[in-house]
Each structure stands twice: as C-alpha cells, then as structure tokens.
Design a protein around this nucleic acid. Structure first.
Lengths: 146, 146
DNA sequence: TTGGCTGCAAATATTTTGCACTGGC
DNA sequence: GCCAGTGCAAAATATTTGCAGCCAA
C-alpha cells in the first residue's frame, strides 16, 4: 500500500484537476479513506468525520463518496444488504477476503486472476471491463476464538 | 444444465422434505426458476407469476425466494443497487459474466477457480466457505450493435 | 463575488413485517 | 380442521434529492 499522505495528496490533486472544491468536510473524509487500514463503511466514515466536524450530515458523506467513486479514486465494495464498504487505498478492482464473523476485509494476492480474465475474454468474446471477486470465510483469529 | 423438469422435481422434493406446503403460487415461482435460461429478477418473476395467478403479491415472491435461498435451492446474486437476480438452476457459488449493456448474465467455465480458492486458504489461513466472482463487460451481441 | 457545497428534511426505492383470511394437507 | 401461506397495507431501511444559506476559490 502507498504512503497514506501520498495517497491523500493524490486524491486532493484529482479533486483540483476536476475543479472541485476542497472543503473541510471533504478533506476529513479523504483523510479517513487514505489512513484507514481496513475498508470502512458509510456509517463508520460518518462517525469518524463527526469527531472533527460534528455538524456533518450523512448526505455529505454519501455525496463525497459518490464523487470520489466517479473520479475513480475510491472503490465501492457494494453488498446487497446495504453494508457497503469503501477502499480509498486501492481504488481499482481487486479480490477481497472477507471474514463473515468479524467482518474484517483483507486484500490477498492473486496473480492468476489477470490470466483468468484474459482467457475468459478470449473464450467468450466479451470485452471485460471490470470484475468483482470476494471470498467469504472465517479468518484465523475467529477460528481460534471458538 | 440439468433438465428443467428434473430440477423442478428436486425443488418440490426439498420443500416436502422440510414440511413446506406446495401452494400454486410457490409451484409457479419454482417453475419460472427451473425453466428460465437466464437469471431473472424479482420483478421479472413477479410479472411472470401474475400471468397465471394475477392476485399474487410481491411479498409472496420475496418470501418464496427467501425460503428457497435458505434451503439452498436458489442462488441469490445480490447487487447493491437492488437489482438482484436469482439462479434456480445452479444454486451453488459459480462465476458470472455480466453484460453491462443488456444485463444478460452468462455462466462461464472457470476450472482454475477451485485451485485458486484452495491456494488462497493455504496462504491466508482463512477457512473459505463461499465466494462470489463477477466479471462485467460488453457481450459480443452488444459490441456488434454499435 | 459567486456558484459549488453543506445540512436539514422530505422524497424515493426497496424489502420486510403484522395480521386477518384462505386453502393445502 | 389446523395452521402454514397469502395478500394487503403499513413499517422499516437505505439512499437520493430539493433547497436555503454558506464559504472556498
């Protein structure tokens, strides 16, 4: 993973390039995204922003994430049950390993995925633009806690 | 894919085994699931059921799908935007190839995925129980229609 | 200065639930 | 005949939107 400060600068730069304003709320949200190790939820981000800016509304968090998503600086890991998570560190498609017990999300290395994608495109004639790969299971920590 | 009639029998049998009633509405929904080539949406199923049973409510469709999901006879392909799809033919995790233009969903063969999963479990210590793999792109038909 | 951004509230969309009635077994 | 299942409507949930006021550029 890149240095969080560097990552933050990248995101701010992207905003400026697109003539978007750097408001205190936005900066706070970007900081949370850049510095968070895990993959925070909307509520999670909302709670964190309110520490520094107590009047911040949930709508602003939604709007900012939608914006960063459009600028391809945040990856949305959407779940049908509404428990979406956000990744500001690696804003491009990559596999996730998700613990169904503690909800931790890890980014594993899977070098064979690129080959698999190319092979699939060749076999089916699809032009593949994006993908989503999630593995669900129990992490080592939760296995031991039994 | 198995014969639709056989698949329907399997699903009915599973209901009986679990002491669930075979109502006309349920049977109609199961038929749609067993015979549909694609991966129908809730609304799609709802519209189809109403042809034979016009008074059927959307809630019943939801309840039936939830039940079949619990009995592991239907796979729910959940999307965060609420456009869920259902697969009654292959009710176990498998990759999907999704056209973002016409929303068609195809089931490709990816034999290497099983190896990948096992390798991942070995590398990370996770006990992997489930997975979800979607590729998004443009299908050959939609590429030609331009 | 000014128009994009915020924050509140209301609107929207989707799925779930309560409950009286119905009908499969 | 019993009680799971149905259908309606209301509730619960999650996200989006309208708009008046504010502030970053």
């Amino acid at each position: 993973m890149a240095d969080p400060e560097t990552r933050l600068d990248q995101m701010v730069k992207k905003l400026k390039e697109n003539e978007c304003r750097i408001t205190p709320q936005r900066l706070a949200i970007l900081k949370i995204l850049a510095f968070s190790e895990g993959h925070p939820s909307i509520e999670n981000i909302y709670e964190q922003v309110k520490v520094d800016f107590p009047t911040t509304s949930l709508a602003t968090v939604y709007k900012t994430l939608t914006l960063m998503k459009e600028l391809k600086e945040v990856l949305e890991i959407g779940f049908a049950d509404g428990s979406n998570r956000y990744d500001g560190n690696k804003p491009y498609p990559h596999p996730h390993l998700i613990c169904i017990n503690c909800r931790k999300i890890v980014d594993p290395d899977l070098t064979t995925l690129a080959d698999m994608t190319q092979q699939l495109a060749q076999d089916t004639g699809f032009r593949i633009l994006n993908h989503r790969l999630d593995f669900f299971g129990i992490c080592p920590d939760c296995q031991n806690k039994k």
